[in-house]
Design a binder for these strands. Sequence first.
DNA 1: ATTATAGTCGAAAACGTTTTCGAAAACACC
DNA 2: GGTGTTTTCGAAAACGTTTTCGACTATAAT
Lengths: 343, 343
Amino acid sequence: MNDTKLIDIASALGISVTTVSKALKGYTDISKTTRAKVIEMADKMNYMPNSVAVNLRTNETKTIGVIIPATVHHFFSSVLNGILEEAEKRGYLVIILQSSEKYELEKKQVALLLQKRVDGILMSLSNETDDFFHINEAIRKNTPVVLFDKIAKRVDCSKVVINDMKAAYDAVTYLIEKGFKKIAHFRGSYVPQNSIDRFLGYKKALEDHNIQYDPSLVYVCDHNTDFEDGYENAEKLMADHKDVDAVFAVTDLVAIGIIKYFNDKKIKTPEQVAVFGFSNWFMSTVISPKLTTIDQPGYDIGYRAASILIDEIAQIKEHIPVVHQIVELPTHIIERESTQRGI
Amino acid sequence: MNDTKLIDIASALGISVTTVSKALKGYTDISKTTRAKVIEMADKMNYMPNSVAVNLRTNETKTIGVIIPATVHHFFSSVLNGILEEAEKRGYLVIILQSSEKYELEKKQVALLLQKRVDGILMSLSNETDDFFHINEAIRKNTPVVLFDKIAKRVDCSKVVINDMKAAYDAVTYLIEKGFKKIAHFRGSYVPQNSIDRFLGYKKALEDHNIQYDPSLVYVCDHNTDFEDGYENAEKLMADHKDVDAVFAVTDLVAIGIIKYFNDKKIKTPEQVAVFGFSNWFMSTVISPKLTTIDQPGYDIGYRAASILIDEIAQIKEHIPVVHQIVELPTHIIERESTQRGI
DNA sequence: ATTATAGTCGAAAACGTTTTCGAAAACACC
DNA sequence: GGTGTTTTCGAAAACGTTTTCGACTATAAT
């Protein structure tokens, strides 16, 4: 209530607010003695600048906005963690919004953040998003945007991603080199680019190693809330192709569903069928056998994206022309039990 | 850049900013015709109010701050989810900060949020926090605070919690009634009240059912990053007490460590030793056998806390005296395989 | 015609800062 | 004592709104 402001310090000291402000901000045209007095009084009165007033005057809020499709998701939690740490380090606050995979909500939220005058926006696109007017609008207003994970290639801004296609390619190549011949793929839905890219990586790896691509070995797992999807499709797979010897899953979650089915039906993993996941979620070490998977560096993605965004904010402020970066973070294979060939 | 503001609309229409502002806010002393013209022009010029200016003038930011010890944690993700949804519904933005279990950071972050003039603060205390000056300072400044999960009883504000002691009591009682006789407890560290309360619930359940409490059956798991802790202590437990027939773990994570050890050593769960977890994390259905546990309603905690906070913000604004609530959310037992007695 | 009333509008102050610019005082130099 | 320089300070404008209060016009009532 009784918040002390500049004028309180000023009148307590019998000087002007201008002088108080300058003293606190270290202007050199204030004598050492008055500066000392001001600082002491500010301290005594427990002065804290009103950020809202500062923001209005300086036209910056030291705040960035983050829009993600979901928070309860191990990947996005780690991204968030990376963002929060980098923002803290650089003196920025972060406002979080979740679009829940809805385009309309995402659009509204971008507008909200612009009204709030955030200094920049970090976002991972919803699955529904297929026009980018709202993003371009932010950029046009000089509010830099950095896209991560689920990005749009056509938007002219910085991006932080992994190479889903290459990661999938590496995974399938690993399986092939391990000697697996008939490799199925449990893909994600047709919408997000990630699942398309992982599928393409799968296909290309087969072709590059002279294995005929067989569409009937590809199953779609498109409701990604639990592992039932993987479980049910594993059942179909074993009915269709008794001789399959490996599965590359679009996600650890579906991989776990597969393993659960195999465990229930006493189908030996990896002896009869190997399983390869994607993302390295925490639970991939909980399941038995432990899951071989691709490490998806959520924390790094978050902190790199935040770092680039804050850099761009600074550049815009200094009127330095900003050049957008496309950062592709490396992934690597985490080899565990689910793909280890006996002996 | 070329953000349109009230004065742009005003001069385009040859009227005053006052009239424009009033027209947009639905004041009744503006004629229908000019209101229509203003709205049309505002729309045409894509007007969006500058929140910072509005905030300064109205002295409210429609923003709440959240301080949690960690984000990458299934429980806090769900809490966050609840907070975000309720805040969205009520028209509030959310600033997230993580204290990383550090008292000094937590203190700094409260100060930051107060500077930012958030309308209220939601927080779960760090393990280090044992003085509450920073929280009381916020309350004194008329910024309501709602504590959740890790709370301080001595602070005079609303709180949203589960009854850890009762939940633990129920869990152990369930085990006793199932016929288990020698029940060990893997407790958390001595610091957070939650782990103390769960321990007390364990102890009281034993005593109320005439089972002698044996301190040597209690093991401390205090580095909660992975399940190694549970694994290692399970080894000790089986060396010390070959005839133990059940374990109540402070957390699903340590419960999973225990089960992993039992699986490795071919100790049958639940036939030889039953395992009971706490929190109902996602992975508790991934492990085999599936884990019996206590449902900790993270989403509900988050949305209730946010709801109460926003109510209090409104009450303070209307000068209605606010009466603090202590909400205790019910928990219940999720019975799965790890405690099912044979047949 | 006068007064009362309702309907419209705008000037100006306010929110709490930051920053420009000029002024006053103090000092130096000849 | 005049001129130039440095040091120290403060008045005032600005950021973009909201809201109070008074003013003006047009209509209604007497």
